[in-house]
Amino acid sequence: MKKMQTPNVVKHFSMTALAAGFVFAFLPITADASEFGSEKLSDGTEHEEHVELLQELLVEEEYLEDESINGVFDETTEEAVTVFQEDASLLIDGIAGPQTLGALSVLEKDDENVLVEYLQEDLKSFGYYGGSIDGIFGPLTEDAVKGFQSDAGIHADGLAGPATYSAMMNFTAPQPETTVESEPANEAASEDATETTEEATASAETTSESTSSAPEGTTISMEATAYTAYCNGCSGITATGIDLRNDPHANVVAVDPNIIPLGSRVYVEGYGEAIAGDTGGAINGHKIDLHMATKDEALNFGRQQVNVTILN
């Protein structure tokens, strides 16, 4: 990812404090997040009102100058979004999606908008929210945010801002403890247990036969995003020399070589078998970027948590 610079973009805060669990007092937000639609704002977006609201948020946080508010998602706006994402330790793609807009807005109790819906979906996927996805930041949502913040080791204030969205990027939900049954206390129980074991063994053999086609190898839970070979400044040639423009339907993924060695065959849940043939500036740790044939496919994929099996 190249370092973007522009006289209209001003860095506002350091993530050193965010990482330590501090919360910043944001300036009053003039833009109303409830006005945003469900689309992601990026270069070429034509919804003037939504882009203006985004630009107002960026001005409030001192990433844009007032004169840059023009309702056009231009290069200056993209650079401002990118710098904010970098400072807030979010996914750096220059696209103002739900996480970036939520972090800019700082969602809190009594908010009602589509960004709260996305927040509730994220909290539900982590096991912290059990209510309905209604876009209403009520007591249940606030408790879910506080519970997540506490487990993530950040200040549990119930406000969903940059620190919270940053923590979500690499958070792994706690795994439930498994219980082990004690041995039978008498001979009759032992006989019953033997019969049960035999039945379980037969069932396991049947299951094994039916799932023999499932991928075998080390499986890792990873955060997945998507990209195309036709982004601005992209050559279409991966880090390992694969020409994606020559083969737009190739299943190639960008990885952190410290986690998945380049050249490995992997199986990505919902994507299929692929080659770990590329890297990316924002692809660090348990993150993976999936190559898509078109920009629309990449945007529609968004960001998901998937299981990735390393086949070799």
Score class of each variant (00 low, 15 high):
residue 200 A to R: 12
residue 311 L to W: 06
residue 303 R to M: 10
residue 108 E to V: 07
residue 44 G to D: 13
residue 300 N to F: 06
residue 296 D to R: 13
residue 112 E to Y: 14
residue 265 R to Q: 12
residue 241 G to D: 04
residue 260 I to G: 00
residue 261 P to C: 03
residue 211 T to D: 13
residue 45 T to L: 02
residue 179 T to E: 14
residue 38 S to F: 11
residue 59 V to Y: 02
residue 105 S to V: 06
residue 10 V to N: 14
residue 60 E to C: 10
residue 230 Y to K: 11
residue 71 G to P: 03
residue 65 E to T: 14
residue 154 I to T: 06
residue 187 E to T: 14
residue 33 A to L: 11
residue 66 D to R: 12
residue 16 T to G: 13
residue 50 H to A: 12
residue 180 V to S: 04
residue 133 I to V: 13
residue 162 P to N: 11
residue 51 V to N: 06
residue 256 D to F: 09
residue 37 G to N: 10
residue 145 V to C: 08
residue 292 M to K: 04
residue 18 L to N: 10
residue 278 D to M: 00
residue 137 F to E: 08
residue 64 L to G: 01
residue 254 A to F: 02
residue 206 T to W: 09
residue 285 G to M: 02
residue 291 H to M: 06
residue 200 A to P: 00
residue 224 A to I: 08
residue 30 T to F: 12
residue 15 M to F: 12
residue 7 P to K: 13
residue 15 M to W: 14
residue 273 E to Y: 11
residue 126 F to M: 03
residue 36 F to W: 12
residue 2 K to I: 09
residue 253 V to W: 05
residue 5 Q to K: 15
residue 89 S to Q: 14
residue 150 S to W: 06
residue 164 T to M: 02
residue 281 G to R: 06
residue 12 H to L: 11
residue 218 T to H: 13
residue 80 A to R: 05
residue 194 T to Y: 14
residue 21 G to T: 07
residue 42 S to I: 14
residue 57 L to I: 05
residue 32 D to Y: 03
residue 124 K to Y: 04
residue 69 I to Q: 06
residue 259 I to A: 04
residue 5 Q to V: 15
residue 303 R to G: 11
residue 73 F to N: 02
residue 236 G to A: 08
residue 193 A to S: 07
residue 160 A to H: 08
residue 168 M to P: 05
residue 287 K to L: 00
residue 264 S to M: 04
residue 160 A to C: 04
